[in-house]
Design a protein around this nucleic acid. Sequence first.
DNA 1: CATACCTTTGACCAATTGGTTAATCTACAT
DNA 2: ATGTAGATTAACCAATTGGTCAAAGGTATG
Lengths: 209, 209
Amino acid sequence: MIEIEKQTEEKIFEAATEVFVEKGMDGARMQDIASLAGINKALLHYYFRTKDQLFNKVFEMIAAKMIAKFSPVLDEKLSLEEKIRFFYKAHIKFLQDNPRLPGFILNEINRNPARIKKILKTIEFKKIWTTLYSQHKEELEKYNITEKNLPQIMTSIVSISVFPFAARGLLEGIFDSMGIDFDTYMEERKEFAAEFVIRAITKKVPGVS
Amino acid sequence: MIEIEKQTEEKIFEAATEVFVEKGMDGARMQDIASLAGINKALLHYYFRTKDQLFNKVFEMIAAKMIAKFSPVLDEKLSLEEKIRFFYKAHIKFLQDNPRLPGFILNEINRNPARIKKILKTIEFKKIWTTLYSQHKEELEKYNITEKNLPQIMTSIVSISVFPFAARGLLEGIFDSMGIDFDTYMEERKEFAAEFVIRAITKKVPGVS
DNA sequence: CATACCTTTGACCAATTGGTTAATCTACAT
DNA sequence: ATGTAGATTAACCAATTGGTCAAAGGTATG
């Protein structure tokens, strides 16, 4: 029956997502996914022939979801500074809801770069950049942003929100001995990161230290 | 013989390091390590009883090596700004020489947080902070740095150099479509990152945009 | 030469794991 | 009722893999 089928496939997919994100492709066990979905292991292979196939679908779905989260920044009618603030608020919130995603994605990228590169081919980054550029032409001149240092700035922006989640286990260890709570730190980071970046890209006024 | 023993153990250790960093704990195969070391698999277990034990020793060695690379920053008699420039130059160079380290470390942290937390317990981060603070007491007031936002700043600094390596596979995919070379990007980042951070922590002068 | 001790090896084992298969079950159409 | 097609399962398989073991090799000592 189509109703039940959807249910089962959905259940499997959700379970697979959870297990893959938690354990990674190598660490994940088909039996664990089956158990979590409350079904037989053979049924897994009935719906998704192989582990590789299942993983690819899960990974593509996650990638699509993340990209969808990013893109609204392009549409918002905001100034550049407002966009940066908006980005960090939205992006960090998303990561708070999916804290294991950064580690998972980065790991799989390193484990199988070919797979991620194939998925990335479908996105036109140059287009995103030109869109952003046309939207903020005048503003960009006010800042240090040129075509040359744009990759530096973009990657720096993303680093600042993604890295703490990827390195969460490490940061928690460090924070422990300093009496800092990771969640509080992350909550404050929404605003800190925005101001940090805005200050960094603001042109230094000559003659004023 | 003690001479040969050292040789063999060394060979195993180097091979293990390479394979573990490349494939991660889960993905690494004892046979691969043995083959790379040019020895029998049984000999692996003769020197390092289990895979877990071998991995732990490798991981601890890497952690120690990284910490050793970090600490000179504390000793240098430099101004804060010079220290930031020195840090990025040295740190990015280290990562250029060991490009797979960030991905490896982050992955293992996420896969087994307990292990890394145990290792971290041996380091007194509070001490590092107080050392830094006493060294730059006057300067820090010139900047936005207080005890409260220090973790934000420190993690931001590290993010900017570590993240690109951890996400290398992804960045290369993006850069491809924009005609950017990762190595060039990374080389330029040594200077960019320093200026970026210095600008970010510099207090805004009121009345001047 | 013999003894003792450490190193090295090939063969082997038990457990895990991705994947298959044949049989059973369920719902629905006739 | 009955046949049919898809959904589900238990049992099973082959390959991989971490780990073991008894035997063999090598080397210094007496």
